[in-house]
Amino acid sequence: MKQSEYEKIDKKIKKALHSKTDNVFASDDMLEEIKEKIYLKNSNYGGFNMKKKIIAVSAICVLCFATLTCIAASSRVDRWVSHSYHTDDINEFPSEAQIEKEAGFCPKYVKNLSDKYSFDKVSFAESTGEDASGEKVVETKEVIFRYADKNGNKNNSISLFCNNIDKAYTESFDSDKYEKSEYNAIELNYSWSLMKCFPPDCEEKNIENMLTDEEKKLKDEGRLDISYGTKEIETDKLQSLIWYDGNVQYNILAFNTDLDKEEMINMAKTVIDA
């Protein structure tokens, strides 16, 4: 091609790309949403390595919302936007009246989730389910109880998410990913996944080669998420136990703990019996 032809094509490509995005602007509340997510990550996992925390909690949030994504009566929820109200954090074990006042409903909750985990604080959030065009389909309130390791190990913490969402908006948990059990006629859905985080410089094609066969299998099964952002390669484990009781969906999330499935089920039983 001659130089002038290059220049003409370059100009056309440039204009084509700009004309495609002329009407695309970041929403006014995007910065606020980013800050809330940063705050949530900071406050949820204050003792964690900051580099890995972001990745871990992102995955936790994805898991949380994924459990809520579904098809409602006539409108599909394509994504959830969550806003936490960190100014309303309560650090003393709250009364039911306090919870009711802040959230508009009161889920079951306990001071001690097990011999090892006790109440640390409670925070509140609101989630909006939107359809593909960004229209609001449903709004829910969420109460999030944090439980800390009684031995003071800050790397061990558990969250109990309580969401007053209509069951029509909750997932069926039919996937093989969930291991089911039952307590007092309530279905308990246990799942786990790994998050492997690589330094930003890692090439995607190299990452595939850096995974073991077992990890590749887990990735195909949807049990391994890949992220970027740590200085070194790090792997974290996330466990979740979800059930629905009295118009509230409960979700116990454990991040990098040494808990097993039975211990988490016992925690769920403690809450159900409260």
């Binding site: 970041a26 995007m30 949403e33 980013i34 997510k37 940063i38 990550k41 900051m50 580099k51 925390k53 972001i54 992102s58 930003p200 970027y228 952002g229």
Partner: peptide, 11 residues
């Protein structure tokens, strides 16, 4: 974009 700015913040 949200995830990118969050990663920027932490890294």
């Amino acid at each position: 974009v949200q995830e990118t700015f969050i990663q920027c913040y932490f890294n």
